[in-house]
Design a protein around this nucleic acid. Structure first.
Lengths: 212, 212, 212, 212
DNA sequence: CATGAATGAGAATTCATTCAT
DNA sequence: TATGAATGAATTCTCATTCAT
């Protein structure tokens, strides 16, 4: 008992985490309506009662998943030390970070789409918690742009918000639409070659926007 | 009564269209799982039986909606006469057309997202019908780029597919993420001012990609 | 137009027959509840409306099928001229006739079973039409038995009704239970060899009952 | 409260049994297609969800009913100690047992007919479980016949399978066709007198088959 | 805290039957 | 008479949620 090993059974917090993790997978694969509480209970080696114990409802669980997703990307963004970089390199780094995050966290993309289908009703409830985080990102980009303009590397008059949205757009859309895209363009958008082409092009796109 | 446009009852084709139209609304608002056949039947002044008569299943109906959506955007694209324009103006026109199409057909955006959630299984079934259409678009853009490079207006070595994807991305994403975006950026992305800013920025973005 | 060829279209009687024939197949394969009016309409190259025009309801159609089935077996029985045969040979002939009828008219077996599932409610409605026919059969067998007893070939005191039922039983059951029987006995009850064995045994069984 | 037989609520096995029992009644009265899951749920003091929890589908439930029916008759057969009896008496006992089983378990007769209508598809799935049991019955009858032939009581060359089938036939058919039979023969086949006549006749029939 | 049984509302799908042409 | 569209009531099956242990 003096050991530091957490008890496996009857560990409320551990159960909560397992449920949340299973829910993230289920919701990202099937959307809110398509997800099944039964399936989440099974995936989490738990039971349906636990979902209600911890999250109150299927909607409450979805809300928790959305919140966790946003908190995770925020935490990742905070680790970037863009202010220490030369402006254009800072922007390239941000583009590549965003790309890599979506690539490594495909559930984020579908969860965001699902939340948009539901008109962001869950996100609105936790607005306070996620609101500032994006504001922080815009402020950071604004700072980089200011530095770039001052150094003559960037053209003046660039709207930081548009840049932030565009960085998201050119990366997010590629993954979000990978299935229909692969069909209509008749190429495998997820092949190594296609991925390399795309991220390189995205860097060029942002450079084209910023360059003086 | 003397007019030739008496609305016909017992008109199979008309019923099919009404159901399809109602389904487009329902699916775009609620996704495939969230949509209710009952609701579609009511919206179309028809009944559930007719859905199954015409489309076989909820999935079959969704497939028909997806097909109609793609056929519609294609028909719209075909009306653009980009080959007659000066290259950069042609590309600006394409960006503005795409923007306007998503703006005026918001259901298209959510339907595409839903289809991606379902890994494009419906679109794959009608691949033959929609496949060439996007190929046509890529070829058209390739032609414009060639002309632009030849005239010295565009830089050489631009991949037409990346340009096509990027045009879609910067326009589509804005509408697709308007709900979560409005929350996290704390602005109304759909205000007239915001919309004007965005489309202007998107034109600049594409110019930045192409300019020599 | 002076020819005797009946008009193909708009021939009420011909339509009725086609529907009846299609219904016999459908009901014998799927039972009353399992049969589909849609399927019957299609099978008969007709349409559902005709079913209701001619037979009033699905139940009415089933009733007509049952009646036709009984009338058919009766007509076949009437062609047997058992009174002209030596008694034991007459009985053997009746056994073989019954066997062959069930073998060649498998739908009869399933229709009778279906009608029993429904507690003979349809047959009761047409009792008058089918009642005397079976009475006739019992009377005929009674006559043969009398002749057999008189000649010393048959033992006395045989109940004709039991004989009639037994002849039906040993033949009918074999076909009625051919599917479950083939499974539980692990043999193909419908192979040529199995069929020959069975009819030979059935003749012996009846001889055993009658022989003095 | 001190007794050990407190009727348990939330007893999964008990619920399963209640559903199975209700299903046996419903299916035997109405067949597979005619049976209603709603009705089974109500009869079993349960609800539709439990049917699907335990049996997966209406078909799965029917399969379980079929299996239980076969297991029950097998269990009853196993209690017969025919090998200790004098051969002819053993056969008479078997005939009377079969008769009594069908008389007391009328659902068995209709269930078997229903399963034959469905071409034994459910029985085939549980073939392994029911296959040997009938083989056992045939082997047992073969043994009795051998003893009878050895003692000179039975004629030689009798096929045990045909005897088994015939015993089933003359008993099963009588009950299976009791409704249509009562109509066409214009007698109540289920009156005490009719029943006594029939079982007596059936014993004679088997004696006639076996007697040397 | 944990488990699995239970439930009722609801969802997709089917079907016999009727209606308009 | 013939046809196919239309309908509403069922019917099978599903699901989020609650309850008993």
């Amino acid at each position: 008992m003096v050991t530091s090993t957490t008890p496996k059974k009857r560990d409320s917090e551990a159960t909560r985490k397992r449920v949340l993790s299973a829910a993230r997978i289920e919701f990202s694969k099937l959307g809110l309506s398509g997800a099944r509480t039964e399936s989440i209970a099974t995936r989490s080696n738990s039971n349906k009662r636990m979902i209600y114990e911890h999250f109150g409802s299927k909607d409450g669980l979805f809300e928790a998943v959305i919140q966790a997703a946003w908190e995770d990307i925020r935490a990742a963004e905070l680790k970037l030390n863009l202010q220490d970089m030369e402006p254009m390199e800072a922007m390239r780094t941000l583009v590549r970070f965003t790309w890599k995050y979506y690539l490594k966290n495909p559930h984020f993309v579908t969860l965001v789409n699902s939340e948009n289908l539901h008109r962001a009703i869950h996100l609105k409830k936790i607005k306070a918690k996620v609101g500032e985080m994006q504001a922080h990102m815009v402020a950071m980009v604004a700072g980089i742009i200011d530095r770039g303009v001052a150094s003559g590397a960037f053209r003046p008059g660039i709207d930081p918000l548009q840049v932030v949205i565009t960085i998201a757009a050119i990366n997010f859309y590629y993954f979000s639409n990978r299935h229909t895209g692969s069909v209509v363009y008749n190429v495998d958008l997820m092949s190594d070659e296609a991925l390399e082409n795309r991220i390189a092009f995205n860097v060029l796109t942002i450079e084209g926007i910023l360059r003086a």
